[in-house]
Amino acid sequence: MIKITSLIVDKIAQLAKIPVDEKEKDKLAKGFNETLEVVDELFKIDVSQVEPTYQTTGLKNVFREDKIEKEKMLSQEQVLSQAKNTHNCYFVTKRRLSSFEDSL
Protein backbone atom coordinates (compact mmCIF):
# COMPACT_ATOMS: atom_id res chain seq x y z
CA MET A 1 0.00 0.00 0.00
CA ILE A 2 2.37 2.70 1.21
CA LYS A 3 5.79 2.76 2.72
CA ILE A 4 6.08 4.19 6.21
CA THR A 5 8.70 6.88 6.27
CA SER A 6 9.82 8.95 9.22
CA LEU A 7 8.23 11.86 7.35
CA ILE A 8 4.82 10.21 7.77
CA VAL A 9 5.48 9.59 11.46
CA ASP A 10 6.45 13.24 11.85
CA LYS A 11 3.36 14.41 10.02
CA ILE A 12 1.07 12.23 12.16
CA ALA A 13 2.80 13.36 15.35
CA GLN A 14 2.21 16.93 14.30
CA LEU A 15 -1.48 16.23 13.62
CA ALA A 16 -1.78 14.47 16.98
CA LYS A 17 0.08 17.32 18.68
CA ILE A 18 2.13 14.77 20.56
CA PRO A 19 5.87 15.18 20.99
CA VAL A 20 7.81 12.05 19.99
CA ASP A 21 11.52 11.40 20.28
CA GLU A 22 13.66 9.46 17.81
CA LYS A 23 13.47 6.22 19.80
CA GLU A 24 9.68 6.36 19.90
CA LYS A 25 9.55 7.03 16.18
CA ASP A 26 10.94 3.59 15.33
CA LYS A 27 8.40 1.93 17.59
CA LEU A 28 5.59 3.96 16.08
CA ALA A 29 6.69 3.16 12.54
CA LYS A 30 6.60 -0.52 13.51
CA GLY A 31 3.08 -0.02 14.89
CA PHE A 32 2.03 1.67 11.67
CA ASN A 33 3.28 -1.31 9.71
CA GLU A 34 1.30 -3.68 11.91
CA THR A 35 -1.75 -1.54 11.32
CA LEU A 36 -1.16 -1.92 7.60
CA GLU A 37 -1.16 -5.70 7.98
CA VAL A 38 -4.52 -5.87 9.75
CA VAL A 39 -5.89 -3.31 7.34
CA ASP A 40 -4.89 -5.54 4.44
CA GLU A 41 -7.14 -8.26 5.89
CA LEU A 42 -10.12 -5.94 5.46
CA PHE A 43 -9.64 -6.01 1.71
CA LYS A 44 -9.66 -9.80 1.55
CA ILE A 45 -13.39 -10.13 2.26
CA ASP A 46 -16.14 -9.23 -0.17
CA VAL A 47 -18.25 -6.35 1.11
CA SER A 48 -19.31 -4.91 -2.23
CA GLN A 49 -22.99 -5.47 -1.38
CA VAL A 50 -22.74 -4.20 2.19
CA GLU A 51 -23.43 -0.71 3.52
CA PRO A 52 -21.08 0.77 6.12
CA THR A 53 -22.29 0.77 9.75
CA TYR A 54 -23.27 4.19 11.02
CA GLN A 55 -24.94 3.21 14.28
CA THR A 56 -25.17 -0.30 15.70
CA THR A 57 -28.58 -0.27 17.38
CA GLY A 58 -30.44 1.46 14.55
CA LEU A 59 -30.98 4.91 16.08
CA LYS A 60 -31.58 7.77 13.68
CA ASN A 61 -31.79 11.51 14.24
CA VAL A 62 -32.21 11.67 18.01
CA PHE A 63 -33.48 15.09 19.03
CA ARG A 64 -34.04 16.78 22.35
CA GLU A 65 -35.76 19.95 23.43
CA ASP A 66 -33.62 23.01 22.88
CA LYS A 67 -34.00 24.42 26.36
CA ILE A 68 -31.69 25.76 29.03
CA GLU A 69 -31.31 23.42 31.95
CA LYS A 70 -30.00 25.29 34.91
CA GLU A 71 -29.04 22.16 36.87
CA LYS A 72 -26.74 21.09 34.06
CA MET A 73 -24.95 24.43 33.88
CA LEU A 74 -21.59 24.91 35.52
CA SER A 75 -20.71 28.18 37.24
CA GLN A 76 -17.76 30.18 35.95
CA GLU A 77 -15.94 29.26 39.14
CA GLN A 78 -16.51 25.54 38.54
CA VAL A 79 -15.44 25.79 34.92
CA LEU A 80 -12.16 27.48 35.81
CA SER A 81 -11.46 25.47 38.95
CA GLN A 82 -9.22 22.87 37.29
CA ALA A 83 -7.24 25.19 35.03
CA LYS A 84 -3.63 25.89 35.92
CA ASN A 85 -3.53 29.29 34.31
CA THR A 86 -6.43 31.77 34.37
CA HIS A 87 -6.72 35.52 34.11
CA ASN A 88 -9.78 37.68 34.78
CA CYS A 89 -12.08 34.65 34.44
CA TYR A 90 -10.44 33.51 31.18
CA PHE A 91 -8.35 30.47 30.39
CA VAL A 92 -4.82 31.46 29.49
CA THR A 93 -3.25 29.61 26.57
CA LYS A 94 0.02 29.79 24.72
CA ARG A 95 0.25 32.20 21.83
CA ARG A 96 -1.06 30.53 18.66
CA LEU A 97 0.00 33.06 16.05
CA SER A 98 3.56 34.19 15.60
CA SER A 99 4.25 37.81 16.35
CA PHE A 100 4.95 40.45 13.71
CA GLU A 101 8.63 40.49 14.67
CA ASP A 102 8.84 36.71 14.14
CA SER A 103 7.63 37.03 10.60
CA LEU A 104 10.26 39.56 9.62
Binding site: I8, V9, I12, A13, L15, A16, I18, V20, E24, K27, L28, G31, F32, T35, V39
Partner: peptide
Protein backbone atom coordinates in the same frame (compact mmCIF):
# COMPACT_ATOMS: atom_id res chain seq x y z
CA UNK B 1 0.44 8.08 22.22
CA UNK B 2 0.55 5.01 20.03
CA UNK B 3 -3.24 4.68 19.85
CA UNK B 4 -3.87 8.34 19.11
CA UNK B 5 -1.28 8.33 16.36
CA UNK B 6 -2.36 5.00 14.87
CA UNK B 7 -5.91 6.32 14.97
CA UNK B 8 -5.00 9.38 12.98
CA UNK B 9 -2.97 7.19 10.63
CA UNK B 10 -5.97 4.87 10.13
Amino acid sequence: KRRVMLGIFG
